[in-house]
Amino acid sequence: MAALKTSGRSKHALPSFYNNLPQNRSSRIATSRRDKANQDKLNTDIFELYMEDLWKHIDEDKKSAYAYFDSLWFNMYYCGQNIPNVLKWIKAKRIFSRQYVFVPIVCCGHWSLLVLCHFDETNCSDIKKGPRMIVLDSLNTADPTRFQSAIRKFIADIYETEEREESKQFINKIRLEFPKVPQQNGEECGIYVLYFIQCFLQNKKLAEVLENKKLEEDFTQLLDDGWFDPEELENFRKDIHSFQANRNSKTEE
Rank of each mutant, 00 (worst) to 15 (best):
T6G: 04
S7F: 10
G8W: 03
H12Y: 13
H12K: 15
F17N: 09
Y18G: 05
N19F: 10
P22K: 03
N24Y: 12
R28L: 11
I29V: 11
R34C: 05
D35V: 01
Q39G: 10
K41H: 10
N43Q: 09
T44D: 04
M51L: 09
D53E: 15
W55I: 07
K56P: 00
I58A: 08
D59T: 04
A67W: 05
Y77W: 07
Q81I: 11
P84Y: 04
I90M: 05
I90W: 03
A92C: 09
F96P: 02
F96T: 05
V101S: 15
V103N: 07
V115K: 08
E121N: 13
C124T: 13
P131V: 05
L136M: 15
D143A: 04
R146N: 06
F147W: 12
Q148F: 02
Q148P: 00
Q148M: 12
I151F: 01
K153P: 02
Y159W: 09
E160K: 12
R164V: 06
Q169E: 15
N185K: 11
E188R: 00
E188K: 00
Q198Y: 12
F200M: 08
L201H: 06
Q202E: 15
V209Q: 08
L210F: 07
N212T: 11
F219L: 10
T220F: 14
D229N: 15
P230Q: 07
E231M: 09
R237E: 13
H241A: 12
A245C: 06
K250M: 09
E253S: 12
